[in-house]
Every structure is written in structure tokens, then in C-alpha cells.
Computed example of a mutant assay.
Amino acid sequence: MDFDEVVAIGSRLSQLPDRTAYRRAAREQLLRLVPADDALWIQAADQFGSGCVAIRGDRFAIDRQLSGDLTRYWTRHVTPRWQTAHVHERTPFRVSDIIAPRRWREQETYHELKYAMPEHQLNIAPPPPARFRCWMLARRASDFTDAEVELAIGLAPVLATLGLMYDRLEPWQEVAQSGNNQADLTARELGVLGALADGLPARAIGRRLGISMRTVDKHLEHIYRKLGCRDRLIAVAIARQLGLLPVIPPPAGTQFPV
């Protein structure tokens, strides 16, 4: 998978309407690229596994049994223990990278959780401050290959960025669904926003609109303030939610669960 494909995947995932749709579509993409029995989303409130939530399965719904079991075994499970101890080392890793397979199979946590998290696991965790959350690919037949780990490494920054974006976008859903346009952008600001959505840097936006970089920066400052955000990715996503920009449909043939 090359850089262009990573960008294309990120672009498609960024068009989804909310966090739930994003996570379901991200699961589908992960399983397409790295075959596994399941792709789980796991998060907890702190290093002790408080409030742990595990989402898995074809319905991609909360598994209450696994959530409770993970909360119980969180501090004894090798993966969250390793992640807590190596908070700045957020490269995707296999369980076999941190514990010998034989020792892993002897662990109580392995036996208690293998009904949902079988022997071979590949973890993709976002960087701080999102410390206690991760994607976990799990399969029984064979361990994940080095090539599959490389794929995960390529996707990790995209998943981390989009995960943060959708977390921050969630409060905007009610505004978007009500159709109440709170942004009140001027025509010039909408022009800058459109150029921003096309991926243009400030200098190129100025050339397109015939204005100085200083003026572009001032418009961007107003746009960010009115949309309640601080960066271009979030601004464009919020604008699409509010109907200020068109939602770009995925390429023909692309299917995302709803």
C-alpha cells in the first residue's frame, strides 16, 4: 500500500457522518487490508481499565461480557500493561513482539479472553493523549506477518487523526442535524473555506482568490473562530456537517456499513 492509497482511505473515511459510522467503516477497511477474524475497538478511562468498552463482531456493537472481562483483567493483560509502560512508543505491534508465544499461552488472561481475543493479535494504538484506546486485529490461524505490520504502521496516523477528529465533531451532530447554521460565514470566508477543502495551502489560496497571505490568514482566523475549531481538517469536516460544503461521495463501488 503506497502513500496515495493511504490518503485515499483517509479521504473516504473522513466523509462519514458520525463517529459510529467512521468506526464501522474503519473496521471494514482494516479487515480488507489485513485479513483477521475480527477487528475490535477497545477503550478505557484510565490505566486501570476503568469504564472499559470493547466493540466487536459483524454488528460492531458493544460486547458487554468482553468489556467487563477486560476491565477485570486490564492490569494483568500484557497488551495494556505494555502500552501503559511504553506510552511514547505507539508503533503497531503484535502480542508475539512483546511476549514469547508459549509464555503468552500460559497466561490466565489469554485463557479467559480467548473467546473474543484469540492468540494472535495486532494492536494499533493512537499516540498520547489518547492513551487507553486501540484497534485490535485478532485471528486464530496464524500470526500477523511483518508486511501486515507495515500496513498497520502506514494506517496508524490516519486512524489516529480521524479518531480524534470524530471525537471532537460529535458535539456538532445536533447542530448539523437541526439544519441551524450557526457559522454565519461571509462570501469571502466561504471562498477561502472551499479552497481549504481542496487542500490548498495559504499561499495558493491567496493566488486563487487574488488576496494576500495576510488576508488569507485573517479569514482563516475568522473561520476557525466561527466554526469553533483550530485546524483545517476539523474546519472542513464541520463545514460539511453544517452543509456549508458539499459532502464528497466515495468512489463508485465503495461500500461502507451504516
Rank of each mutant, 00 (worst) to 15 (best):
L245G: 05
T215N: 13
R214Q: 15
Q241F: 15
R232E: 14
G228I: 09
G228Y: 04
A235G: 01
P251Q: 07
L242Q: 00
H219N: 14
P250H: 02
L242K: 00
S212Y: 00
G210C: 11
V216L: 03
Y224A: 07
V216I: 07
D231R: 04
Y224G: 10
G243S: 03
P250I: 07
I248H: 10
P251F: 10
L244H: 14
R240S: 01
A239V: 04
R225Q: 11
V247T: 10
K218Q: 12
I234D: 13
R214F: 09
G243K: 05
G243I: 11
I238V: 13
S212G: 11
I211P: 12
T215K: 10
V216E: 01
R230F: 03
A235I: 03
H222P: 01
A237G: 05
V247E: 00
A252F: 11
R225Y: 07
M213R: 15
D231M: 01
K226S: 13
K218A: 14
I234H: 15
I248N: 11
G243L: 09
L244T: 08
P249Q: 03
L244P: 11
I234E: 13
V247F: 07
L245F: 08
I211M: 15
E221I: 01
P246M: 00
G228V: 12
Q241L: 15
M213C: 11
R225V: 04
R225D: 07
R230L: 02
I248D: 12
E221H: 10
R225C: 02
L233Y: 09
S212Q: 02
I238S: 02
P251R: 09
V236W: 05
I238Q: 04
I238K: 08
V247N: 02
R225K: 13
M213V: 11
P246N: 03
